[in-house]
Design a protein around this nucleic acid. Structure first.
Lengths: 223, 223
DNA sequence: CCGTCTCTCTACCACTCGGTAGGCACATCG
DNA sequence: CGATGTGCCTACCGAGTGGTAGAGAGACGG
């Protein structure tokens, strides 16, 4: 690839990155092309040379994020077909995607709020292969008695998505609501641990809790 | 109260209502004063007569929503100090607030995304009395062995807030992700039921599930 | 009946927005 | 070397924004 073309891709990439951050922080209408261009270090018409319109830029940002997700899915699916202790593996892989950059959660949430008709099908396409695996896993676990019988697989997946999306998007605010010291990028470990615990313990009959008094036969799926 | 003054309050109220809806749907920057005025049926300067600036209107909208929440809290607290089967009562009362008008969840989520520094303390003030009751209830339940020992009360409350907020704000999109028929205002009953189930079963050792094979001594707290 | 006060209106303002026109520097290639 | 084309720039545009000025219609109190 000639250096000139590489440079072009490089600038486009930097535009996408800064646009992602500013769209996530201030919303699509709240982030102006001037601000984005300034963050990149160029002028607005130069930005419009790479992305012919603001809406093109928005779609580019969304596509890049979904592409990143696509890139993460194989790792998640591999975790999903590994061993019997699949839950933690799946959860860890899926959370990594948002831990890498919490702006992804903010951006996605904003897009779902602003343009549900357009964004929902796009997201659905990317989420379904993964959610299908999880649902199958849940149903099989239910047949084997490992997973609670009252779990509604698809609806459960939706709740976990809510949990993660909102958790990463608003953790700073939520931390303050609980009068905790907010951390810079990640939700505090405490909130993240509880997020996982809620997701897990609502799935299996018993969680990894050290049941204080009464001993109970260990069931596959708990730690 | 003279009819003239009542009319003034009436117009201000209609402005607040329409502004709530439009802010929730399109965001603060995305909803223009002209659009809001048009929805009310007046002109923009008339709107600015009642609310001197757009930011005043925003604060008014937020305050009204928090006031509505304040109005709902006594019912919730009453439910919280009723009987042993408190969970369903608390949950129902709290959910009613958002079921009445899902725009409340959307508005709150948007404000938390846009202005965490300003909104978080406001919300914290309103949520803390309620969350404190819930946390005390959880801790007492843990001492009595009714509630799972591994629950982190404050963090658990945060997760439930995430679940509800995101669930009501994006349920249309999430429904489509799961390829369900979206309903007009409420999340589909199926999603709502699972939301409650996740919150409840992650709190108590056993849920209301008809444990299929192995019988187990009933523990207070489950249904 | 007349002055005052309340509320709404039309007309306008400065400003920012997304987007365009056209020129300039430079790298590439025949 | 000149021709071509790429990528960035300054300058500008119309549209829409939040907000203001000031006039007019109608209710109220003396």
């Amino acid at each position: 690839m000639p250096p000139l073309e590489r440079n072009k891709r490089d600038v486009a990439q930097r535009i996408l990155d800064h646009a992602t951050k500013l769209f996530a922080r201030h919303g699509f209408v709240g982030a102006s092309l001037r601000d984005i261009a300034k963050a990149v270090g160029i002028r607005k018409p130069s930005l419009l040379y790479h992305f012919p319109s603001k809406d093109d830029l928005r779609r580019g940002v969304l596509e890049q994020m979904l592409a990143h997700w696509n890139h993460a899915v194989p790792r998640i699916l591999r975790a999903a077909t590994a061993g019997p202790e699949q839950f933690d593996a799946i959860a860890t892989e899926a959370l990594t995607f948002f831990r890498e950059d919490p702006d992804r959660a903010r951006l996605l949430l904003r897009e779902l709020l602003d343009r549900p008709e357009e964004v929902a099908p796009l997201v659905a396409m990317r989420v379904q292969p993964w959610s299908k695996i999880v649902c199958d896993y849940i149903r099989k676990g239910q047949e084997q008695g490992r997973v609670r019988a009252d779990v509604d697989p698809e609806a459960y997946v939706a709740q976990v998505i809510n949990l993660v999306l909102c958790g990463f998007a608003t953790h700073i605010s939520i931390s303050r609501v609980l009068a905790q010291a907010p951390e810079e990028h990640d939700p505090s470990e405490r909130l993240l641990r509880e997020m996982l615990r809620v997701a897990k313990s609502s799935l299996f009959e018993t969680g990894p809790a050290p049941a204080p008094a009464r001993a109970r036969p260990a069931i596959a799926g708990g730690a």
